[in-house]
Amino acid sequence: MTIDEIRSILGAKYIVGEEWKDREVHTACGSDMMSDVLAFMKDQSVLLTGLCNLQVIRTCEMMDIICVVFVRGKMPDEAMIAMAKDKGITLMTTGHRMFSACGMLYKNGLQGGPAY
């Protein structure tokens, strides 16, 4: 699934990084706890989160996560946007809640990681 397909399925809006919309995403992770995200190592992932601080972008940088979807209409601040741009991470926001957003992507074929 491409980043732009994710945007379309979730009715989301780009905040930064629209130029990377054709990148392929293979897996997804939904969490507000960054240490849970850091326990999950997959290539070319998207993160869905309701957490909105600079450490979200840092976590993505460490994990090589290429796209973040902020759920419940959350909007990142200028510092987050600047860091995401610098690190090549696409940010988008959707009004859907976490459960619904994850379900919509899963239903359309995007997978999570294996069970623990």
Binding site: M41, Q55, R58, E61, M62
Partner: peptide, 30 residues
């Protein structure tokens, strides 16, 4: 707290320049 991660980010950048394997870089960075 906002500056936490700057050291890891800097190391990650250096390891990339040294052409270290991306999986190794990710493990070290995390």
């Amino acid at each position: 707290f906002t500056r936490a991660g700057e050291a890891s980010s800097s190391l990650k950048g250096s390891l990339k320049k040294m052409n270290v394997d991306p999986d190794i870089i990710r493990r070290v960075a995390i």
